[in-house]
Design a protein around this nucleic acid. Structure first.
Length: 1170
RNA sequence: GCUGAAGUGGUGGAAUUGGUAGACACGUUGGACUUAAAAUCCAAUGAACAUUUAGUUCGUGCGGGUUCAAGUCCCGCCUUCAGUACCA
C-alpha cells in the first residue's frame, strides 16, 4: 500500500469536522490551556506559504497540550473590517460584506486543508453585527468612565459627577485634558447641561475633541501614530499631514504607567517589550521654571517671587481664584448677558469668564487670541485710573483689552459682539493651544537631568514656541523671523534626514537662573521639538551632546560642573559616573542625590517640581471610512449621546457610494437612513431629523484595532448574546497561555489590546489585567525571487582611442576589475556607438552570479557572445579586443513557478506568460542561443518579501496538492527557528516528504501492515526514548525545527533496526501527531484504534533505556581530536588515563614525547597536553 | 545615534551547563534499477595539501585574551536585519 496523502488528509479532515474533535469545553475536569493565533485579515489574495507559519507552530503546541491531558482552547476567526475590501468596493461597487464573505470562504478552505485543530464553533468575525455589538458596548463603557488617579483605576462617570456636584473639580485627581478650567460645586450645578457635557468629555476615557491628527489626503482618512512609518502611511506610502479635526480619541495615556509596569509580569519577547517601553517613553525628571528677565520693551525684570498662579507655593493666587469663582457665580446683569453670548463659541472663539490673568481677575478672556473683554460698572474717578494702569500692564503682556460699559452691553449687544468679532479677527491665534501659566512671564522646561542645573548656560526653545515672538528683541527680530521661516519651510523629512547641521538664532531675551540669579540667554533651535515636553530645553552643554554642539557652534560658554571630567572634546552624559561640582549646594553629590536635593530646593522656592513625562499620546479612534464599526452615538445640540446598550448593535447603513460625500463628510454621510429616533429607539431616515426626537448619527467609524482589542475574550464564549462573554467562561479560561503572532503589531494591536483589557479589568468585567501570559513572534517567511536579465543595449568602446588606458587585455581580468563603471565614464570620447537589440534578449545569469559581478566583468564575460549574436558590423574588432563592449541589462522578475529545482527556467512557460516575451531570445550558460535542449537558462535569485508584484508567492494549495499538508507543516517547521526570518525554497520540501514516505514504510509494506507485538529491541527502545526526551524538550522550548530532525533520525534508525514492534511504533505516532496529524491518525487507525489519536496520552520518557555501559571517548591532543576510543563508563579516571596512554595510536601521536598533562573528564573527553 | 537580534559549508540550519564543529535536510557528483523518465536505493560531499595506505594543515564575521580545551566566556572592532529616532 502506498502513502496516498491526498486521500488520507481529506479523510481525516472530514473526520475531525464531523466529530468536532477539537471542540473545547467550557466545563471540564481537565486543566485549561488557551493557545491563540493573531486572527487574519481575509485579503483577496488568499494565503501564501508564509501565513500559516505561526498557525502551524501554535497548532503543534495545542495538539501537544491535548496529548498532555489539557482542555485546550485553540480558536480562529477573522479581523474582517479593513481597508482593502472598501477600496475594492469603491472601484467595483461590490459591497465589502460580500467581498469579505468570499475571501473568508477562501481562507477557510485553505486553512482547513492544512489540518489545523481549530475549534471552529467559536469563530469570530469583527465585521459581524453579533460581534461588533460588543465592540460598541465596550466603547460605551469607555465613554461612561473616567480615570481616577487616586484609586489608579477607571471608575464610572457617575462617581465623577457626584464629586463635581459636591466639591467641584479642584480636588479631583484624574486623567484629563490639559486645559480643564477650575470650577466649584456651585459652578457645576449652575452650568447648563451642555456645558456639563463638555466638561465631562474632558475626563471620559473615550472623548470627542478637536485634536491635531495625522491626515492622509490620498486615503481620505486620519491615521494613528502606529499607522505611519517614516512619515508616510503604512498602507500605500502616501504623505501624511497634520490637521486639526474633531475626532474620537482613546485616553490610553491614563494607562501609560500601568502599561509599562504590566510588562514586568508577562513573558513576552524582550524586543517586543522594549518596543512598547520606547513607545510609552517614560522619562523621569523635573519641571523647572525660569522667569524671563528682559522683554523687548525694556521692562524691568520680573520678580519671580511675585509670580502668581505658578505652582502652589507662597502666593495669593488661590485667594484670587476663590474670588474669581465667587464672581462667576454672581455676575452683573450685563456680564451675564454677554457671557450668554460668548460661552458657546458663537464667535468661533473660546472665552472664559472671571479668569485670573496675572494679579488681576478679568471679566472675559479668549486665551487663544489673548483678547480681554471688560464690562465696567459705575465708573469712579479712581477706578478709571486703576483700570488704565491695569490695561497697560496687561497689554505689556501682549493682551489686548477692550472695554464696554454696562449700557453698551445691555443696550446693543449685537454691536458689542460685532466689535469683539472684529478685534478677534485682527489678532493672530497663539499657535500652541497651551497657554503659559496664568500671568507668569517665564519659561517652563522639562529635564531629566535637574542635577545639572548649574551647568545651564543657555536656553533653547523650539522655533514654534509660543513665547518666541513675544520675547524677541527688536535687534534680533529679523534674524529670528528669518530662522523661523527657514525651519518652517523644511519638511519634516528634511529635518529628519539632516540631523547633523546645527542651526539656531538668538532671541535677545534672557531668563533668570533659579539659584544663581544669573541671566541666561534664550535661543531658538530646531533640535528642540515643539511637541515634546514644553518645547523648551534648559541647555546644559557639558552634559548633553546636542547642547554641546550647539554651544560650540554659536560660541556659547560651556561651564564644567562635573568633578574630574574632561569636556574639552565632548559632553559627558554618563549619569552613573557623575559627581557634581561647581554647583553650590550640589557639590560632591552623585546623580541620584543631586537630583533629589535640587528638586526639593526648587519646590521650596516654587520654581519646579519632580515630574514624569510620557511620550505615549492618546489614540485617535475615528476613521473616515465605511467598512468599520459604526459608533453607537448620536448628536443632540452638537454633543455626543450614547445609544442605550440594549438597542445594540447599531448596524452599518447601506450607502450608494463608498467615497466621501461632496461636502467632504465620511462615507456614512451618503447614507439616507442614518438618524436615531429616541422615541422608537431605532435607526430612521435622515428626513425625519428634527432635533427633537430624531437626531443625526455619528458619521465616522471605528479604526481597525477596535475589534482586535478584545477578541481573545470573545472566543471564551463566542456565541453569547447576553454578554461579550459570560463570567463563568471568563473565569474558567481567564487568559491566553500562549499567543503567537507577528512583531509588527508591537505598538499597535498589542498595546491597545492591553489597554482595553486593563480597562475591562478595572470595571470588573474580566478577571485578569494582562490577557496573554506568553507571547512569541513568529518570523516571516521570505520569498526567493527569480530573475532573468533582459539586455537593454551595448555600448561599443574603442579602447585604442582612449589615451589613458591604452589597450585592455581582456585576459587580464585583474586589471579590468580595477576599472569601475566610473572609469568607463572616461571612455566617453571613445564610444563608437550604442546598439540596441531588435528583439527581446535575455543574457545568461552566469549561474546566478551576474549581480555580484562588476560591470567590467559582465562585459568581458559577454562581449563575444553578445557581439556575435547581434552581428554588429565591427564584429572582428570586438572579437580581437579592439572594441570593448559595455553591457546594459535589467533584471526582470520571473514567476517562480517557471523554475525547477536547479534554477533552470522553463522558457516555453515564460514565453507564454506575457505577450511581450512571446519571441524572447535566451542566451544560455554556454553562450548559445537556446533552441531546444542545446543550452539551459539559469535564473538569478534574491530573497525578498513575498509579494504578488515580485512573482515570488508560493501558494500552499499547490504544495498540499503535490506533497500534502503534513509535508507542508513539517517543512515550515523544518525551515528554521520559529522567530527567525527565513527564505522559502519549495525544492527543499522533498526532504520532509521523503521522510513521511519512510515513516509510512516503517508501518505499511507492500502487503499491508508490518507492525506486530514483538518485544522491542534494546536499540529501538533507546531510539524511542531519546526521541521522546528531545521532542518534549523541543516543543516546550518552541524549537520545532530541531524536533523534525529528531523524527528523521528516529525513523532512519528504526528503519535500520527493522523495528516492527507495536510498542515502539505506537508511541512514535503520538510524538509525530502534533506535527503531521493526518498520517498519524491514519496509521493509528490502522494499528487498530477507533478513537482519534488527538487525546492519546503523550509517551513517558524512561531514562533507564538510555543508560550506556560504555562511551566512545574522543581522544584529543592539545585540544585537537585525533581519534576515538571505546571505554567502559564505569572506568575510573586513573584507569582511563592508563588505558589511553597505553594505546598504540596515542604513542604514535606522541612520537616518544612524554605528555605534560593528561585531562580526563569521565563520560566526556580525554585531552593530552604534550 | 540608541535599543534589540544575528553573523557557522554551495543553501536552510544543528551543536543543552566551555568538551568529537557542520546533526538533519536541500543541492551537487558518481553508481544501481529502468527502453526512458519519474520514483526509489547506495556512496561521496567544509577547504587546501597528500593520495598506495595512512594522514597533515586551515576552518564558526575581524583582532586580541582567558582555558588542558572556545562557535560558546571576556575585551575591542566590523557587517547585516528589525524597531526607534534631535524625547531634553
Amino acid at each position: 500500500m502506498k502513502y496516498d496523502f491526498n486521500q488520507i488528509e481529506k479523510k481525516w479532515q472530514k473526520y475531525w469536522a464531523d466529530n468536532q474533535t477539537f471542540k473545547a469545553e467550557n466545563n471540564s475536569e481537565k486543566p485549561k490551556y488557551y493557545v491563540l493565533d493573531m486572527f487574519p485579515y481575509p485579503s483577496g489574495a488568499g494565503l501564501h506559504v508564509g501565513h500559516p507559519l505561526g498557525y502551524i507552530a501554535s497548532d503543534i503546541y495545542a495538539r501537544y497540550k491535548r496529548h498532555q491531558g489539557f482542555n485546550v482552547l485553540h480558536p480562529q476567526g477573522y479581523d474582517s473590517f479593513g481597508l482593502p475590501a472598501e477600496q475594492y468596493a469603491i472601484q467595483t461597487g461590490q459591497h465589502p460584506a460580500i467581498t469579505t464573505e468570499e475571501n473568508i470562504k477562501t481562507y477557510r478552505r485553505q486553512l482547513d486543508q492544512i489540518g489545523f485543530s481549530f475549534d471552529w464553533s467559536r469563530e469570530v468575525r469583527t465585521s459581524d453585527p453579533s460581534y461588533y455589538k460588543w465592540t460598541q458596548w465596550i466603547f460605551i463603557q469607555l465613554f461612561n468612565s473616567w480615570y481616577n488617579k487616586n484609586a489608579d483605576k477607571a471608575e464610572d462617570i457617575s462617581e465623577l459627577i457626584k464629586l463635581f456636584e459636591t466639591e467641584g473639580n479642584s480636588k479631583v485627581n484624574a486623567a484629563c485634558d490639559d486645559d480643564v478650567e477650575l470650577f466649584s460645586a456651585e459652578d457645576w450645578n449652575g452650568f447648563s447641561t451642555k456645558k456639563q457635557q463638555e466638561l465631562l468629555l474632558q475626563y471620559r476615557l473615550t472623548y470627542l475633541a478637536e485634536t491635531e491628527v495625522n491626515w492622509c489626503p490620498a486615503l481620505g482618512t486620519v491615521l494613528a501614530n502606529d499607522e505611519i512609518v517614516n512619515s508616510v502611511s503604512e498602507r500605500g506610502g502616501h504623505p501624511v499631514i497634520r490637521k486639526k479635526m474633531t475626532q474620537w480619541s482613546m485616553r490610553i495615556s491614563a494607562y501609560a504607567e500601568r502599561l509599562l509596569q504590566g510588562l514586568e509580569t508577562i513573558d513576552w519577547t524582550d524586543s517586543l517589550k522594549e518596543s512598547q517601553r520606547n513607545w510609552i517613553g517614560k522619562s523621569v525628571g523635573a519641571s523647572v521654571f525660569f522667569p524671563i528677565l528682559s522683554f523687548p520693551n525694556g521692562e524691568a525684570k520680573a520678580d519671580s517671587k511675585k509670580q502668581p498662579g505658578y505652582m502652589t507655593g507662597g502666593n495669593n493666587s488661590h485667594l484670587l481664584l476663590e474670588r474669581a469663582k465667587e464672581m462667576r457665580v454672581n455676575p452683573t446683569q450685563a456680564e451675564a448677558a454677554l457671557w450668554e453670548q460668548l460661552r458657546n463659541k458663537k464667535l468661533n472663539a473660546k472665552f472664559r469668564q472671571q479668569h485670573l490673568i496675572g494679579d488681576y481677575i478679568v471679566d472675559f478672556v479668549c486665551l487663544d487670541k489673548k483678547l480681554i473683554v471688560e464690562v465696567d460698572g459705575k465708573i469712579h474717578e479712581n477706578q478709571l485710573e486703576e483700570d488704565a494702569k491695569r490695561t497697560e500692564i496687561l497689554e505689556n503682556d501682549y493682551y489686548k483689552v477692550i472695554r464696554f460699559s454696562n449700557e453698551e452691553v445691555l443696550g446693543n449687544i449685537e454691536e458689542v459682539l460685532r466689535a469683539i468679532q472684529e478685534e478677534l479677527s485682527k489678532r493672530q491665534s497663539v499657535k500652541n493651544e497651551e497657554v503659559p501659566p496664568q500671568g507668569v512671564r517665564g519659561i517652563e522646561v522639562f529635564t531629566t537631568r535637574p542635577d545639572t542645573i548649574f551647568g545651564v548656560s543657555f536656553m533653547t526653545l523650539a522655533p514654534e514656541h509660543e513665547l518666541v515672538p513675544q520675547i524677541t528683541t527688536p535687534a534680533q527680530k529679523e534674524q529670528v523671523e528669518a530662522y523661523i521661516e527657514a525651519t518652517a519651510k523644511r519638511s519634516e523629512r528634511d529635518r529628519m534626514a539632516d540631523v547633523k547641521t546645527i542651526t539656531g538664532a538668538f532671541t535677545g531675551a534672557y531668563v533668570e537662573h533659579p539659584f544663581t540669579k544669573q541671566p541666561i540667554p534664550v535661543w531658538i533651535g530646531d533640535y528642540v521639538l515643539a511637541g515634546y515636553g514644553t518645547g523648551a530645553v534648559m541647555s546644559v552643554p557639558c552634559g548633553d551632546q546636542r547642547d554641546y554642539d550647539f554651544a560650540k557652534h554659536f560660541n556659547i560658554p560651556i561651564p564644567n560642573i562635573f568633578e574630574g571630567v574632561d569636556i574639552s572634546e565632548e559632553a559627558f552624559a554618563d549619569k552613573d559616573k557623575t559627581i557634581i561640582a561647581n554647583s553650590d549646594f550640589l557639590n560632591g553629590l552623585n546623580y541620584k542625590e543631586a537630583t533629589k536635593k535640587v528638586i526639593a530646593e526648587l519646590e521650596k522656592i516654587g520654581q519646579g517640581k519632580g515630574k514624569t513625562n510620557y511620550r505615549l499620546r492618546d489614540a485617535v479612534f475615528s476613521r473616515q471610512r465605511y467598512w468599520g464599526e459604526p459608533f453607537p452615538v448620536y448628536y443632540v445640540d452638537g454633543m455626543p449621546q450614547m445609544i442605550d446598550a440594549k438597542h445594540l448593535p447599531i448596524k452599518l447603513p447601506e450607502v450608494e457610494k463608498y467615497l466621501p460625500t461632496e461636502t467632504g463628510e465620511p462615507p456614512l454621510g451618503n447614507a439616507t437612513v442614518w438618524a436615531w429616533d429616541t422615541k422608537k429607539n431605532e435607526v430612521v431616515s435622515n428626513e425625519l431629523i428634527d432635533h427633537k426626537t430624531a437626531f443625526p448619527l455619528e458619521l465616522n467609524t471605528m479604526p481597525g484595532w477596535a475589534g482586535s482589542s478584545w477578541y481573545f475574550n470573545r472566543y471564551m464564549d463566542a456565541n453569547n448574546d447576553e454578554a461579550f462573554a459570560s463570567q463563568e467562561a471568563l473565569n474558567y479560561w481567564r487568559d491566553v497561555d500562549l499567543y503567537i503572532g507577528g512583531s509588527e503589531h508591537a505598538t499597535g494591536h498589542l498595546l491597545y489590546s492591553r489597554f482595553w483589557q486593563k480597562f475591562l479589568f478595572d470595571k470588573g468585567l474580566v478577571p485578569v489585567d494582562e490577557y496573554a501570559k506568553k507571547l512569541i513572534n513568529q518570523g516571516m517567511i521570505l520569498g526567493t525571487s527569480a530573475f532573468a536579465y533582459r539586455l537593454e543595449n551595448l555600448t561599443l568602446v574603442d579602447v585604442n582611442r582612449n589615451q589613458e588606458s591604452n589597450k585592455i587585455d581582456p585576459k587580464n581580468i585583474e586589471q579590468l576589475k580595477q576599472k569601475t563603471l566610473k572609469d568607463l565614464e572616461r571612455f566617453k570620447n571613445s564610444i563608437v556607438k550604442t546598439v540596441k537589440a531588435d528583439e527581446t534578449v535575455f543574457i545568461p545569469s552566469f549561474n546566478g552570479e551576474i549581480m555580484k559581478m562588476s560591470p567590467v566583468e559582465v562585459s568581458i564575460a559577454l562581449q563575444r557572445k553578445v557581439a556575435d549574436f547581434l552581428q554588429i558590423d565591427d564584429k572582428s574588432k570586438v572579437l580581437n579586443g579592439e572594441y570593448f563592449v559595455n553591457v546594459h541589462f535589467t533584471p526582470i522578475h520571473v514567476d517562480v513557478s517557471f523554475i525547477n529545482a536547479s534554477d533552470e527556467l522553463d522558457i516555453e512557460a515564460f514565453r507564454n506568460w506575457r505577450e511581450e516575451y512571446k519571441d524572447a531570445i535566451f542566451i544560455g550558460e554556454k553562450g548559445e542561443i537556446i533552441n531546444g535542449d542545446n543550452d539551459i537558462y539559469k535564473v538569478g535569485r534574491e530573497v525578498e518579501k513575498m509579494s504578488k508584484s515580485k512573482y515570488n508567492v508560493v501558494n500552499p494549495d499547490q504544495i498540499c496538492e503535490d506533497y500534502g499538508a503534513d509535508s507542508l507543516r513539517l517543512y515550515e517547521m523544518f525551515l528554521g527557528p520559529l522567530e527567525q526570518y527565513k527564505p522559502w525554497n519549495t525544492a527543499g520540501i522533498t526532504g520532509v516528504h521523503g521522510f513521511l514516505k519512510k515513516l509510512w514504510k516503517l508501518y505499511v509494506g507492500e502487503n499491508g501492515l508490518l507492525v506486530n507485538d514483538d518485544e522491542p529491541s534494546k536499540d529501538s527502545l533507546k531510539t524511542l526514548h531519546k526521541t521522546i526526551k528531545k521532542v518534549q524538550e523541543d516543543i516546550e522550548n518552541f524549537s520545532f525545527n530541531t524536533s523534525v530532525s529528531t523524527f528523521m533520525i528516529a525513523v532512519n534508525e528504526l528503519t535500520a533496526q527493522k523495528c516492527t514492534s507495536k510498542e515502539i511504533l505506537e508511541s512514535l505516532l503520538i510524538l509525530i501527531s502534533p506535527y503531521a496529524p493526518h498520517i498519524a491518525e491514519e496509521l493509528w487507525n490502522q494499528l487498530g484504534h477507533n478513537e482519534s489519536i488527538s487525546t492519546a496520552p503523550f509517551p513517558k520518557f524512561d531514562e533507564s533505556h538510555l543508560v550506556e555501559s560504555s562511551k566512545n571517548y574522543p581522544i584529543s591532543f592539545n585540544g585537537k581530536m585525533r581519534f576515538t576510543l571505546e571505554l567502559p563508563l564505569d572506568m575510573s579516571k586513573e584507569e582511563i588515563e592508563k588505558t589511553v596512554l597505553a594505546n598504540e595510536k596515542t604513542q604514535e601521536q606522541l612520537q616518544g614525547r612524554t605528555p605534560k598533562k593528561v585531562i580526563v573528564v569521565p563520560g566526556k573527553i580525554v585531552n593530552i597536553v604534550g
